[in-house]
Write a protein that binds this DNA or RNA. Structure first.
Lengths: 244, 244
DNA sequence: GAGTGGTCTAGACCACCCC
DNA sequence: GGGTGGTCTAGACCACTCT
């Protein structure tokens, strides 16, 4: 494979390889959890050196899209894997020890998208959404009340029963049942006062200060797929973030 | 340079180069904002190939410790540079446009470290700290009230007058005046109710929900140097975070 | 031992910056 | 034109995993 000579702005070969690899991921040629071909195989398939494939894979691995395992191979990252199960959950107990969360789902509705969620999901006017709620509990204590809105066209026939039955994380569910892999997310955090509804679900006094977390989650190609607003009790727990 | 044969667990060469580079940074051989020697020069100094130096520099650059500029050279990252001025500030207006913040400093005290700040800074019993407060305003509106605590041994003779006179960001000040470069930080976010003091400084009603941000900031070698607690108004502003 | 990713080298050439 | 980082190659060898 030669670098195309006519490109106005220079694009390195390894970026083109990244595009090709991503294409195979989107198309489902390699599924979450599976191994992709070895570096040497890919090098010969794309007619480039192993080093160039390596650089492309390196970047995809640093974006948590692929996962390398020395001596075994390179795998498609999956929210099903234990280490990735709650990859985007930043709320942790002050003590540091990790507790497995429990989910309770309710309030599923389908309607026309509108307002902030519709804008976040870049929906066309009149496009449908699926909305539902979830209470997440740690050690039996309700800590997070989520309002979740999905682009309905990507999750046909989703039901609460399926969600409850599934058991694992919501993103693991999207991936396993609908083939939608969440790649990255953006969050906006604010402090708010608990209204009556939130207070009831989270078992705190109305007016209690809560952490409000708005999130947009993206799949391949930076396509927004899920909007959510979480209200979180931060007594004994905190949202942890590392800056670098 | 040969790989040492006796090491029980394998350490790649480029990691040793990273250590050597970091050593030169700590010692002040290359100062913030300055260029370090070229890759070929470093390769011959360390008796390794350019590729190995490259990999070491790549990692330091991804940690924002060095900064590459194609065609010019590799530079020591600095909080003085415009793009890094408020590198760790994640609070942004909902509109997205960036407003230059203004700082007001007050309440400086020196005393024996105690409690949470002392633990965070891993101080020995009886070691001294410098504590001061700061109100950060955006567009004339006070938004963040910070309580900042420093390991006193590293900031001899620090005064409020110096801080005020300096003008730029606090980390830029630490770096320029005391040669302490902040490399990374950890933050814990919670929602709290404004007490009387915070309400007064931030011009909100007592009891208003505020975002509380605890931070530990580290210099080279993961040494904790600064602890702070920020209380932040999130009306028209939010703490933005990107998950990947 | 065979296969995979990980390291290291040496050399060629390209894109960018500045003189 | 000369220097710097950036890309790409080809090949050797090492560390890790599984059979």
């Amino acid at each position: 494979m030669k670098k195309s000579a006519a490109t106005p702005s220079f694009r390195p070969l390894y970026e083109q390889i990244k595009v090709l690899l991503t294409r195979s991921l989107v198309s489902g040629e390699w599924k979450p959890g599976e191994a992709i071909p070895s570096e040497l195989e890919l090098a010969s398939r794309f007619r480039v050196s192993q080093g160039t494939v390596r650089k492309a894979i390196d970047e995809l691995a640093s974006e948590h899209i692929l996962m390398r395992r020395q001596g075994k191979g390179t795998y498609v990252a999956s929210h099903n894997e234990p280490s990735y199960q709650y990859r985007f959950l930043r709320v942790i107990p002050d003590s540091g020890e990790k507790v497995a969360p429990r989910n309770l789902f309710f309030g599923l509705e389908r309607h026309k998208g509108a307002g902030e969620p519709a804008r976040a999901l870049r929906l066309k006017a009149g496009a449908s959404v699926i909305a539902f709620k979830r209470v997440m509990s740690f050690g039996g204590r309700p800590l997070i009340l989520d309002d979740i809105v999905l682009d309905a066209s990507l999750f046909p026939g989703l039901t609460l029963a399926e969600l409850e039955e599934f058991g694992g994380s919501v993103y693991s569910f999207y991936e396993t049942v609908f083939g939608i892999r969440m790649i990255r997310a953006e969050e906006w955090l604010r402090a708010v006062s608990a209204d009556g509804v939130a207070a009831t679900h989270l078992k705190v006094a109305p007016g209690t200060a809560l952490l409000s977390v708005d999130r947009i989650a993206f799949t391949y190609g930076d396509k927004p797929v899920e909007w959510r607003r979480g209200l979180c009790v931060t007594d004994g727990y905190a949202y942890f973030n590392e800056l670098s």
